[in-house]
Amino acid sequence: MSDFSILHDYLLPISKVSLNDDQEYDDFQIGGVTDAYEVGHIPDLETADVILLGVSEDRGYGPGRRGPEAPDIVRREFYNLYYWHRAVKIADLGNLRKGITLEDTYAALKTVLGELINASKTVIILGGSHDLTYSQYKAYAAQKYVIEVTVADAIIDLKEGSSIPADNFLMEMLTEQPNYIRHYNHLAFQSYFIHPHMLETLDKLRFDCFRLGKVRENLEDIEPVLRNTDLLSIDINIVKHHDAPANTLSPNGLAGDEACALTRYAGMSGRLSTFGIYGYRPEKDRESLTAKQIAQMLWYFVDGCAVKNKEALLHDRDAFYEFNIVCADLDTVFLKSKKTGRWWMKLPGKGKENEFLPCTYSDYVTASNNEIPERWLRHQERL
């Protein structure tokens, strides 16, 4: 990934000095340690663990007046935060050039992400409208990578007949053939915005949908979902209006600290390679509070990456506590990491002798009571 020239034509540099009102960043601020693409300076992508990419494309919202560029407003807040994990190297590729058409931007984003995914990098995409998720997915599909996708959104963007890409991009993403989505999760939807038949359809496809109340009831249950995720897409409308004033969809949603917990879980995933955060409308924000919220979500994502780097591989059994259980006449094994406290359970069935599914302590307790955990059952149904 040292050949920056592959990506150069798709990108625009940023100016850290301009983002910080002509001041230098402190050496302990994120802006001071981030290796950014600026005029005259090319970042070292080879050593980077996390790469930022701004995509201000918002034509997916449909026709109408555009506000200021969202990625740089988030960058300003993110760069001002203090950095506690210097072992996690951050690079910033600047901003993706907007194409002449929306489809041109989609194609450019797919190309850039494809190069970074193939270089085994973790990429944070600062959007932009939520339909950019489709290009995020196409970066994998172009390589024929079969992946697990998780979207966090107060609504489910499957609105048939809509001409607005941000309202219906999931339809094409989930139904096009050939399809490379092994499994789809939807987090924090608000039921009163969702047609019941839509949920029934997703359930028939064995996709997992978690309503807002379920997510808030026990955030720890969502951690295994994110641990198994390759692509994460978040619409900022999952955060309640009080904590993210630019979210004008609903007064309800996750609290700001709950959203930070979710992104920390995402950062801890050893599989996740792209994380997009979309839907930020600066013209609707108040005192940059939503930008500050997103910046802190990014901080916790990087915090999770620091935890991920400490985790042992599953085949290193000395790094795990092992629990053998007979559950509903099935012999199974639970593993608990000595380093992070996270849990995995062995899957039954032919050909699954060495496959473990991320789970929680509560799944272990359920199995200890001779009941098959729901997470296990859902996975077997999909198989």
Rank of each mutant, 00 (worst) to 15 (best):
E311K: 13
L357V: 01
Y25E: 06
A107Y: 08
P13H: 06
V74D: 05
L298F: 08
R86H: 14
A328V: 10
Y106K: 07
D35F: 00
F356H: 09
D257F: 00
Y192C: 00
I6S: 09
L116E: 02
G32C: 13
H186F: 10
F320Q: 08
M171N: 14
K240R: 15
N228I: 02
D21M: 13
L53I: 08
G114A: 13
D44H: 05
R264D: 02
D3H: 10
K98V: 11
A141S: 15
Q190G: 03
F28N: 14
Y278D: 06
S368R: 14
T290Q: 03
N168L: 05
L313E: 10
K89Y: 11
W84R: 02
T290N: 06
E381W: 09
Q23M: 11
Y79H: 12
P43K: 05
I117M: 04
S337W: 04
D285H: 11
T274F: 09
E115I: 09
F301T: 10
P13M: 06
L262H: 10
N237V: 01
D303F: 00
D303Y: 13
E287N: 14
G127W: 07
K144W: 01
H195C: 07
K310N: 10
I194S: 01
K110E: 13
S129N: 14
W344T: 01
M297K: 01
R182H: 05
N185W: 09
C260G: 02
Q293M: 14
D329K: 13
M171S: 12
Y278K: 02
E311F: 06
I156W: 11
F323L: 13
Y79G: 01
E353N: 14
A119W: 12
L7W: 01
D104F: 10
Y321K: 15
E283D: 15
L212Q: 12
A266K: 13
E283R: 04
L298H: 04
H85D: 11
K98H: 12
E283M: 13
G32I: 08
I147N: 00
R59T: 05
D9Y: 02
C305Y: 09
F356Q: 02
N324H: 13
Y184V: 07
R211S: 12
G341C: 12
V215A: 07
F301I: 04
D9C: 00
M345P: 07
G31L: 04
F28I: 13
S120L: 08
E371W: 00
M345T: 11
I234R: 05
A87I: 03
T175L: 13
E258T: 11
A255C: 00
N324K: 15
E311I: 01
K240I: 04
N324T: 10
P196I: 13
L262S: 08
K110V: 08
R206S: 06
M268K: 15
D27Y: 04
K89M: 03
T133D: 10
Y300P: 04
Y265C: 07
D9R: 11
K339A: 14
